[in-house]
Amino acid sequence: MSYEASKKYPMQPVPFHVLKMQEEIPDCYTLTLQPEFNVVSSFSPGQFYMLYVFGHGEVPISVSGNSFEMGTLMFTIMTIGSVTKALCSVCVGDVVGVRGPFGKGWPLEQVKGRDVLIIAGGLGLAPLRPLIYHLISHSADYGIITLLYGTRTPDMILFQDELASWDDRDDMRVFLTVDSAGSEWHGHAGVVTELIEKIGIDTVRTTALTCGPEIMMRFTAHALLGKGLAASDIYISMERNMKCALGHCGRCQYGPHFICKDGPVFAFDQVEYLFKVREV
């Protein structure tokens, strides 16, 4: 199927085959997918695709790979439900269905010339990785890049080798924390917001981009606001139930927003009032 056909029938998945399958941490895999046919598929960091396993169903997954590597797509998936379980059970050569890309990604233009503070929680690092790739390959356009990354335990830390290589760079610093760990862990223990206290932030020059569980993003946003960052300089990536990604199924509504087309990335000032409402 051509790209045009997928525009005409936006609910039809396009077949991609599994080029590579890599276990990242327990129950979490990165799939590298390549289109079966000539499909143009370029994405912007922070955007997502709908991934389909034949007969099992479809789920929204953010891209975790590099947007400059044309021709393949990478997704880092945790086995949570039946479809993600099926996705993590595929073998190299198997075919999965792909629709996308969808949504608005990270604000690459708005952060130009600014310090970028990236705050990730758990699997939330995956949708931020394409952003990091973008920033470090255009590092002249940006100020200091800081990554604060928190997971529950040390064995849940994603992309360990890359984290080390990022930290080695002159233009980037990386700080890790875990909620709990044994005596073998010599790093910081505690929630990721504690790291905000530990680092110096130039509140005027900094834009913060955060992705993780909603409660983590809530506390992160409030900590940053407390530091003096403007709500419009804080970005979050939201998640809701989603069936179509086209703005038609209505499920991903978040106040006036459709997460699938108005998000998933929002400036915090767009959604701050909704964060104060329960069950919205």
Partner: peptide, 9 residues
């Protein structure tokens, strides 16, 4: 207009 989508075999 809200809808559900179900994949079956």
């Amino acid at each position: 207009f809200c809808s559900n989508v179900e994949d079956v075999t």
